[in-house]
């Protein structure tokens, strides 16, 4: 029982990442009709926003410590962050320690801008082209973006820790009457789940309760009629592309302490996120979120030793097996709309 509860928790944070990426993918597909294979790269850029902020906050000046030597036997060059010099060692170190949450503020405008440039500069030229062309160009863009990141940041993962206050793990087992250590879960992963829930709720609220959102939803349902009413729907859809990029970026920023960012992390999530979108139903925002959490939980369950003892290798294929079963039973996915990608 405790093992099952533990895997449910595991599924929540994996599902959160899938849901956030799939939500952005669905927003772009639902508004612009573009299958964006560069969406994983946006997640990766978000994570590197956290790396960049950490480096900016840690920007240091060098002093020579004659009492110590470096690896060549020369006097040691000691780096002191400017923040520690300006605000004192404790406050300066605390600000650096909080670089990941601070990066959220930095990430939003950056990702909106990246999304805007990507849409206006490249993707808009492919609206009337077949989906295969869109996939090829966005996949190519993803490769270019990840190679750029590798060029500037290197191929090795870069540690980007969570603030000290969120380190360690929380013992759910004790709360629920199990033995100590039976169900422990890292605090930051719980934060990640809560953060994802807030972002998902905010996106839904934005679409549901604002005039802008209402127009966008109307445009998603019938773009032509909204256009005939004199509304510049293209401009709103461009803004939605930026918002989708920001959602992916935020997912990446907060994911940075979970796994050290590397240039390839976007590709690791991309394929599974597409499966999530298809299982949820092309164009369905609630479907993307539901499928994200469902497949995240299934992936966790299938990693249990007891399950793998029965079905070796099931953890590697479970998502695809479930996707096949769901699509056979419900060809439009869990919450897919009629007419989407069916013409």
């Amino acid at each position: 029982m405790d093992a099952i509860l533990l895997q449910i928790l595991n599924g929540l944070d994996k599902g959160s990442a899938y849901a956030l990426i799939a939500l952005g993918l669905t927003l772009i597909f639902g508004t612009l009709g573009v299958v964006n294979f560069a969406h994983g790269a946006l997640f990766m850029i978000g994570a590197f926003c956290a790396v960049t902020v950490q480096r900016l906050l840690s920007f240091s000046f060098v002093t020579i410590d004659e009492t110590k030597t470096d690896f060549l036997g020369n006097p040691m060059k000691v780096k002191t962050p400017y923040l520690e010099s300006w605000f004192g060692p404790e406050l300066g170190a605390s600000i650096i320690d909080w670089s990941v949450p601070i990066a959220i503020l930095f990430c939003i405008p950056i990702m909106l801008l990246v999304g805007y440039i990507m849409e206006r500069g490249l993707i808009k030229h492919f609206y009337k082209r077949p989906h295969a062309d869109q996939i090829l160009v966005t996949f190519g863009l993803a490769i270019v973006l990840q190679e750029l990141i590798k060029h500037y940041y290197g191929a090795n993962p870069i540690p980007t820790p969570a603030p000290e206050a969120f380190k360690g793990s929380f013992d759910f087992g004790v709360l629920m009457g199990f033995d100590p250590n039976a169900i422990i879960y890292p605090v930051w992963r719980l934060v990640y789940f809560g953060f994802s829930a807030v972002i998902i709720a905010a996106v839904f609220a934005f679409l549901q309760f604002t005039t802008f959102g209402m127009v966008v939803r109307a445009g998603m349902a019938d773009r032509e009629t909204v256009g005939l009413l004199g509304i510049n729907i293209d401009k709103r859809f461009t803004i939605m592309f930026g918002i989708a990029a920001a959602v992916a970026g935020l997912a990446g920023v907060m994911y940075a302490p979970i796994n050290s960012p590397n240039y390839h992390m976007g590709m690791d999530f991309l394929v599974l996120s597409f499966v999530v979108v298809v299982v949820g139903g092309m164009g369905s925002l609630p479907g993307a979120v539901l499928a994200g959490f469902l497949l995240g939980a299934l992936e966790s369950f299938s990693s249990m030793n007891e399950v793998k003892a029965l079905l070796p290798g099931i953890d590697q294929i479970i998502i695809y097996v479930v996707a096949i079963v769901i699509l056979l039973a419900r060809p439009r996915g869990l919450m897919g709309r009629k007419g989407v990608m069916e013409e």
Partner: peptide, 9 residues
């Protein structure tokens, strides 16, 4: 995480 979670049990 799903491989590490069962270790303590």
């Amino acid at each position: 995480s799903s491989y590490i979670a069962p270790v303590l049990n």
